[in-house]
Structure formats: structure tokens, C-alpha cells
Amino acid sequence: MIIQAAINGIFFGAVYAMIGIGFSLVWGVMGIVNLAHGSFIMIGAYISFTLFAAYGLDPFASIPLVMIILFALAYCIQRFLINKVVRGPSFITLTFTFGLQILIANLCLLVWRADYRSVKLSYSSAQLVESGVITIPLVRFGIFAAAILLTILFYLFMRKTRTGIAINATALNYEGARTVGVDVNNIYAITFAVSAALAGAAGALMLPITSMNPFFGGDIINKAFVISVLGGLGSTVGALVGGMTLSLAETLGTVFLPSAAQELIGFVFFVAVLVFRPQGLLGKRFY
């Protein structure tokens, strides 16, 4: 029972890590707590759902398309809207992204209705490993593998490409990056777009094992806070650790605790980490 819970926790932790990476990327680079991050996850899941329902496209196969759509959408949002307030104080960006979140939630409600949406895959009952002690469903393993693959790709993008290095440079020193010729507005837009693309992919990955509704975006944002605060801002490895920790705590917690107590402990732990270790559990702040 506990081993099974731990395995489920680690597998799903990879998806949480993807959510946390995007969220803490935007926070670390631009200083924006993006309250609309959950909405991007939700849009990703809904696009994937529509592709499955209309064309029978497998959610795993729809990930590239979902990522491209969200990249384009988020690029425009940052380039034409958020860039105008990005240098403002924290309450401005918080309020702005919250406004964005309720707008997106309302649009999703109009387009996809309030019903719970989920997909049933033909191989959803197939098991990769099946023994007396543990079972690993194929779908969960696929989700894990895809999430880890995307995380590695993101890591390489940040380290090896010119754009990734420019993002790092902007995060380290805004004025300095501008001085050496980085188009900061463009880099901000790309950062936001990459973050949203990862969120969209996470949404598509969550679809086969959860159901989606228009309030999902507002609910999951609390988890993004916890993951990025646990991991520290802007570090890929940190987000992995944060995602795994939260996911393990949740799955193991359901074995031992009622869900309300579990959430309470989560929030208390979150505040405690914020107060006593604002640089995250691993100890590095920013890039």
C-alpha cells in the first residue's frame, strides 16, 4: 500500500515538477507571481480534450500542438499586455494576472461548459508492471516519461541555446542584459510563452488520469506556489524536488490523513518554508 502510494507519488511528481518549472521561471526572471498559470494548464487540457473528442487524437500525440498554441497565446499576452506593467509593484502584477485568470476561467466555462471532462484511452487499463505488491499502469508510466523528457529538454534549452542563455542573463541583471543588446521585451515574452507551453503540456498529460473543469485553473495554482517555494525560484532541479515532495506528501498523506487536515498541513508547511527558508529547501535563490 505505502510502496504503491510512493510510486504513484513519484510518477505524478514529474507533472508537478513541470508545473513548478514554468511558474518559478516566470517568477524568477520577471518577478511576476503568475496567478493565471493554472489557467494555462487548464487550456492545455481542454485543447487536448477537444482534439481527442473530435479527431480521436491521443493526448500524448497532441502535446506538441498544445504547446505551440499556448506558446503563441502566452507570447502575445506578455508582449502586448503584461510587458506594460511588468516593472510595476507586486500588487499590480498580482491583480493583473488574477484578472486574467478569472477571464480565462469564464471563457472556458462558455466554451466547454461546467461539465467534468476526461478522456478514456483504449490502453487505459493496460499495466506495464503487474505483481502482487505493486502495479504500474502504462498510462502513468507514459505520463512520467513524457514529463521527464520535457523537463530535460527544458534544461537543455536554458543551458545550451542562445535564447535560454539570454533568459538567464536577463534574470541575473536586467540592465546588464539590455546593455549587451538583449531585446528584453522579446525575452520576457519568450520566457512567459515557454512557461505557458510547459503548463499546457502538463495539462494534456494530466487529462488521462484526472477530469477537467473550468475551476481547475484556480485550484491548482496553490500547488504551483508550494512547488516553487519548496524548490526555490528558477531552478529546474529544485522544481523537480519540490514537485516530487508535494506529490509524495499528497499520495502518502491520503493513506494516513483526512484530506482537510492534509491541506492544512500543506499550507502551514508552505508558510513555514517561506518564512524560514525563502531560498527553497535546496538553498539557492534565483539562477
Partner: peptide, 11 residues
């Protein structure tokens, strides 16, 4: 549309 309009006003 209430929440959507409120969101737009906020933005």
C-alpha cells in the same frame, strides 16, 4: 459573463 467582464475590467 460576469466573471469574464470583471476580469477584463481588472486588466
Amino acid at each position: 459573463l460576469h466573471l469574464g467582464i470583471l476580469g477584463t475590467i481588472i486588466i
